[in-house]
Simulated assay, not measured.
Amino acid sequence: MDLLSSLGSGDEGNAGPDVPQCSRKGCRADAVWQILWNNPKIHDAERRKIWLACDEHRGWLENFLQQRLFWRSTEPLEEGEA
């Protein structure tokens, strides 16, 4: 048996979920919000990174970013985004 063949090509399972999921660790709920943020120490002022959130974890994720002064805005996740 070839060791590399047994490991696979590395492409299996990398497609991601069909529906965007919440970014909170351990949460697999469908995302309905996009939380836009950046770290001003390392990102340009216009740059926005996005975390996705379900209704339950929206507040937790926003608070986490607000405490670090990273939060910029929260917007609904429209169908077809993410």
Rank of each mutant, 00 (worst) to 15 (best):
W37P: 13
I42K: 15
E46Y: 08
E62Q: 09
W37Q: 10
A45G: 08
N63D: 10
V32L: 06
W51N: 14
L65V: 09
L65A: 04
V32I: 10
I35F: 04
W33N: 00
D55V: 08
Q66V: 01
A53R: 00
W33F: 06
E62V: 03
E62K: 03
D55P: 10
L36A: 05
W51M: 13
Q67V: 05
R48W: 09
C54F: 04
Q66M: 12
I50R: 11
W60E: 07
C54S: 02
Q34M: 07
L61G: 00
Q34Y: 02
I50K: 12
I50T: 13
L65G: 05
E56H: 08
L65I: 10
Q67N: 12
N63T: 13
C54A: 01
L65Q: 03
N39D: 15
A53Q: 01
K41M: 10
H43G: 12
R47F: 13
N38T: 07
W37L: 13
W33T: 01
A53M: 03
K41T: 10
R58M: 03
L52W: 00
K41A: 11
L61P: 02
N39V: 12
W51D: 15
C54V: 03
Q34N: 05
D44S: 14
D44N: 14
Q34V: 06
H43K: 13
R58A: 03
H43A: 15
D55L: 08
L61Q: 08
L52P: 02
L65W: 05
A45M: 09
H57V: 02
K49N: 14
K41F: 05
D55H: 10
R47W: 13
L61F: 01
G59S: 11
Q34L: 05
I35A: 04
R58V: 01
E62M: 13
L52T: 03
E56V: 13
Q66F: 04
E56W: 02
G59R: 09
E62F: 01
L36W: 05
E56S: 11
G59V: 08
R58Q: 07
E62D: 02
R47L: 13
L65T: 05
K49W: 14
A31L: 12
R48K: 14
K49H: 15
W37S: 13
W33R: 00
I50G: 01
N39M: 13
N38I: 07
E56D: 14
H57R: 02
N39H: 08
I50Q: 07
L36N: 06
I35R: 03
R48M: 14
R48I: 11
L36D: 01
D44I: 07
R58F: 03
A53N: 02
N38M: 12
A45L: 04
E46C: 02
H57K: 03
E56P: 01
K41C: 06
W60Q: 04
F64Q: 12
W60M: 01
K41N: 11
D55I: 09
L65P: 10
